[in-house]
Design a binder for these strands. Structure first.
Length: 347
DNA sequence: TCGCCTAACACATTTGAATAGC
DNA sequence: AGCTATTCAAATGTGTTAGGCG
């Protein structure tokens, strides 16, 4: 069960004018990424449709935990079989038409042009990024659903999985290891046969949720933070001595020694704990942090610059008889294909 | 030798079916 | 008969670790 946070939203008030700067309120280090995203997204603007007729607002939940991770340098494990994100992306949406159906999707976009490497105790750039892989969208399993449903509770993308397996056909989001990414939310209005201009499309990126994809954690502080906050990793708390192997072999000389630093940063942060506890199924309120300012960038309204989405929406536009269910099914089929068109921002 | 990746592992949580009680 | 609560096993999600690979 999800509950709305009681704290004020970190509103991203998305102006209808797509050219208006939206990154001015971001921390300076995000500005480049947001600007690049907007440049990429500025490929074209088509009919914005009903979805833009209102002030659609999106806010990332669990900000304090995200901020804690970001302060250290968020890392996300990617595996061949797919690994969930922690923290998971969870957003509150307002300003949708309650009686209109929408599809919510999420994908990952490159944060910058760099490849990274872990050098002793910090991340350093390590050459230029590899070509971005074709977009894989994670379609929220509740899609399509009425706007009132999306606005009723925060929308969690906790089932989104990341992989480095480019051959996977299971709808996982494919990433390159040692590259930095940021989540991007897509809100697509489902077609309304009665309104030819009612197919809206909005995108929101979340620079504060940027992370480096890794196959093994590099920063022990991140490992500790994950262990302290992820219930599935509870077995590694208490200096990791819960594990059988650790009990049997207490001394390990490895770069991965999260237990050693388990007390260096003190007990579980109350704010981080609170943020986590407010996660899935917990009825707690996350208090607002002082710097919890706007962080998501709004991409332009209108049809997506991503050719996949553009082509799909054109197809729907041409086929007014396309029902909502067929439309959503089409998205799912397309997103599961191996060979999607290259994105306009592929490098 | 180094950096990165993979698979197996132990442990904890989540999920869902089966059962009991009202 | 239908609903709710409880129990329990299976499935799933974690980080750890050793070893492979280029």
């Amino acid at each position: 069960m999800f509950l709305h946070e009681e704290r004020p939203y970190c509103d991203y008030s998305f102006p209808l004018n797509p050219q208006q700067s939206t990154y001015s309120s971001f921390p300076p280090e995000w500005k480049d990424a947001v600007l690049r995203s907007q440049c990429r997204d500025a490929a074209k603007v088509e009919a914005q449709g009903e979805i833009c007729a209102q002030q659609t607002r999106v806010s990332l939940q669990g900000r304090e935990l995200w901020d804690t991770f970001r302060g250290i340098g968020t890392e996300m494990i990617i595996t061949k079989a797919g690994r969930r994100m922690f923290p998971a992306c969870k957003v509150s949406v307002t300003g949708l038409n309650p009686k209109t159906k929408y599809v919510l999707m999420m994908d990952m976009v490159p944060f910058d042009d760099s490849k990274y490497k872990w050098n002793k105790d910090r991340w350093e750039t390590n050459g230029v990024t590899e070509p971005h892989l074709p977009n894989r969208f994670f379609i929220h399993p509740d899609s399509p659903a009425l706007g009132e449903r999306w606005m009723q509770y925060p929308v969690s993308f906790h089932k989104l999985k990341l992989t480095n397996n480019t051959l996977n056909t299971n709808g996982l989001v494919i990433l390159h290891s040692m590259h930095k990414y940021q989540p991007r939310l897509h809100i697509l209005q489902t077609p309304d046969p009665c309104g030819p201009h009612s197919r809206g499309y909005l995108r929101f990126t979340f620079p504060e949720a940027a992370f480096i994809a890794v196959t093994a954690y590099q920063n022990p502080q991140i490992t500790k933070l994950k262990i302290d906050n992820n219930p599935f990793a509870k077995g590694f708390r208490d200096h990791g001595l819960n594990g059988k192997r650790q009990r049997e072999r207490p001394v390990q000389n490895s770069r991965k020694q999260p237990a050693e630093s388990s007390h260096e940063t003190g007990p579980r942060s109350p704010t981080a704990a609170k943020a986590f506890d407010a996660g899935d199924g917990a009825d707690l309120t996350v208090s607002s942090s002082e710097d919890a300012c706007a962080s998501a960038s709004r991409a332009e309204g209108g049809a997506g610059p991503n050719p996949f989405i553009s082509a799909f929406m054109r197809r729907c536009a041409a086929d007014t008889a396309c029902g909502v269910e067929e439309w959503a099914e089409g998205i799912k089929l397309l997103s599961s294909q191996d060979t999607l068109p290259a994105t306009p921002y592929a490098r």
